[in-house]
């Protein structure tokens, strides 16, 4: 059963944990992200030496578990990241997870792409829309997107080419992608 659960997607695990109150599914989901949780929390141990991992992780996991039962989760990684951030900002207060407008646009476009994977006509239409949206981006954004996604350039390669840091390249790419998703969503609504 455990192995079968491990093969399920995040969405399915969340659904099982919520609807069937399946603790095993919840465990598999949290275990899937546990290493990232630990890695993200590591700087806090160094910054606050008094922080005890024996109390921090159980309380964080408990908060995630509670949140899983009550909130609508579109993307598990975003949900976990936001929960960790809010926990460190204010450990007493439980801030509900709510995806931003950018995240929602992106999710919407991702879903469309996933749906069009087996439909050639839909795929062609979507490609045309992406091209149109891409032409609406600024020259730099378009250059970065094309180099990264079409020419398979790496962060370091692009950073070296443009003279930016990798962090900056990532930020620029993220913003360009977000704008692209927003334009695609707007196109859909206009259509």
């Amino acid at each position: 059963m455990y192995q079968q659960l491990r093969n399920l997607s995040d969405k399915e695990l969340i659904s099982r944990a919520r609807k069937l109150k399946d603790r095993e599914a919840e465990g598999v989901l949290l275990e899937r992200y546990s290493h990232l949780l630990v890695a993200v929390c590591l700087p806090s141990f160094r910054n606050n030496p008094g922080t005890n991992p024996q109390t921090l992780f159980p309380s964080l996991l408990q908060r995630l578990s509670n949140s899983l039962k009550t909130q609508t989760i579109q993307k598990a990684n975003e949900w976990i990241h936001q929960t960790i951030k809010s926990y460190f900002a204010n450990p007493e207060k439980q801030v509900p997870y709510y995806p931003s407008r950018d995240a929602r646009d992106q999710l919407h476009t991702e879903n469309r792409v996933e749906k069009a994977a087996t439909n050639t006509i839909e795929k062609q239409a979507l490609i045309a829309q992406v091209q149109k949206a891409l032409s609406g981006l600024s020259t730099e954004d378009r250059f970065l997107v094309e180099q990264f996604y079409l020419e398979n350039q790496t962060f370091t390669g692009l950073a070296a080419q443009k003279g930016y840091t990798t962090e900056k390249v990532r930020q620029l790419l993220k913003k360009a992608k977000s704008r692209l998703a927003m334009q695609l969503t707007n196109q859909t609504y206009v259509r």
């Binding site: 990684n77 792409v113 069009a116 490609i127 091209q131 997107v145 996604y149 692209l180």
Partner: peptide, 16 residues
């Protein structure tokens, strides 16, 4: 080449 454009919005899992 055009199909690669859809890569931009491909859902990729987190690092294991």
């Amino acid at each position: 080449h055009n199909e690669k454009l859809l890569k931009i919005f491909a859902g990729i899992r987190c690092l294991n």
